[in-house]
Structures are given as structure tokens and as C-alpha cells.
């Protein structure tokens, strides 16, 4: 079956199995391995990507169902080799340790900041509760999102 979709602004056309997940399409077919997986049951959030700006877990998403829509992965956030403000804040706040949850975490945070540019700590916790992190205890992740929201606000 043919699937056609846009990932990070690039249009891809690929032959794929009809029941291929978006996660498998991204990682195995397009070799965009920045998106991770930790469970394949939607419980860890490591595979979070944006579809038309909304966060979804790509492990439970049929690739064919997002045909014609715009997919954004962690690779699509940084522009011109520079770090996006969220990515920069994750670095400077020590919000990434092993880094395995980080791509999904940043994508979830990106979705939040697009919807709510100045979220409260409670709103950040709510938005990220589907992204498990085993390393950080979440303090520094929340700090990073708060800082990124602040720097985007200042830049706007």
C-alpha cells in the first residue's frame, strides 16, 4: 500500500505494509530514529510526534491514517542546525540525562507551548504526564519548559 505524508516539511511517498505504524514508518522506513519507543502500548510517550500540531503516540498510530497530514518529529524542531528554544532550555537546565525520553518529552512540550504560550507549572505537569522519564524526577524538565516559555514570550 502506498502512503504519502509530510514529515518535517518534506513530502515522502513510500510503499508500506497496510498495518504499519507511524512509529515504524518513521524509524524503519524513513530512518528518522530521533523518535524513540519504550513500550508500544502508549504508556511511556517516548514516541510522541505532532500530527498537524497535535501530540500523538506514534506507536499506536496507523501510518495510513495520517496520509496527507503534516508530521513533526524532534528532528523537525531545530532550524538551520541551531537548537530550538525548548531544546536549548533542556540542555541548559540539565533536563536530559540518558536522553531516551527526551525527544518525546520535547515534542509534547512543543505542543503545549503552541497551545498555551505561558503555561503554569500545573499545566506543564498535566501536558507531560503521558511522558515517562526515569532519570530526572521531572524537576529540571519542568524548569526547562518554563524557561523556554519565558524566552519565547520575550522574543515575541
Amino acid at each position: 500500500m502506498r502512503v504519502e505524508l509530510s514529515v518535517n516539511g518534506d513530502l515522502y511517498r513510500r510503499e508500506s505494509e497496510p498495518d504499519l505504524t507511524l512509529l515504524a514508518l518513521l524509524r524503519d522506513v524513513l530512518e528518522l530514529t530521533g523518535t524513540k519507543w519504550g513500550c508500544l502500548t502508549g504508556d511511556c510517550g517516548a514516541c510522541t510526534v505532532l500530527v498537524d500540531g497535535e501530540p500523538i503516540v506514534s506507536c499506536l498510530q496507523l501510518a495510513r491514517q495520517v496520509e496527507g497530514r503534516e508530521v513533526t518529529t524532534v528532528e523537525g524542531l531545530a532550524g538551520n542546525g541551531a537548537l530550538d528554544s525548548l531544546q536549548a532550555a533542556f540542555v541548559s537546565n540539565g533536563a536530559a540525562q540518558c536522553g531516551f525520553c527526551t525527544p518525546g518529552m520535547i515534542v509534547s512540550a512543543e505542543a503545549l507551548l503552541r497551545a498555551r504560550p505561558s503555561p503554569s507549572e500545573a499545566e506543564i505537569r498535566e501536558a507531560l504526564s503521558g511522558n515517562l522519564c526515569r532519570c530526572t524526577g521531572y524537576n529540571k524538565i519542568i524548569d526547562a519548559v518554563l524557561e523556554a516559555a519565558g524566552s519565547r514570550g520575550a522574543a515575541a
Binding site: 524509524r27 530512518e31 528518522l32 530514529t33 530521533g34 523518535t35 524513540k36 518529529t73 524532534v74 528532528e75 524542531l77 531545530a78 537548537l83 525548548l86 531544546q87 533542556f90 540542555v91 541548559s92 540539565g94 536530559a96 540525562q97 540518558c98 536522553g99 531516551f100 527526551t102 525527544p103 520535547i106
Partner: peptide
């Protein structure tokens, strides 16, 4: 000093190649 991890920029951009990412 409070210094960021040296490997953090790769991790936040999805460039880090873990075992399951190796082709």
C-alpha cells in the same frame, strides 16, 4: 559550576544513536 552535559545537544535533537537505532 552548573554546566550542561556535553552530550545533551545530541540528545535533545534526536541525533544520539542508541543500540536500537544502529543500522
Amino acid at each position: 559550576k552548573r554546566l550542561p552535559k556535553l552530550d545533551a545537544p545530541q540528545k535533545v535533537t534526536g541525533q544520539t544513536v542508541y543500540a536500537a537505532d544502529v543500522h
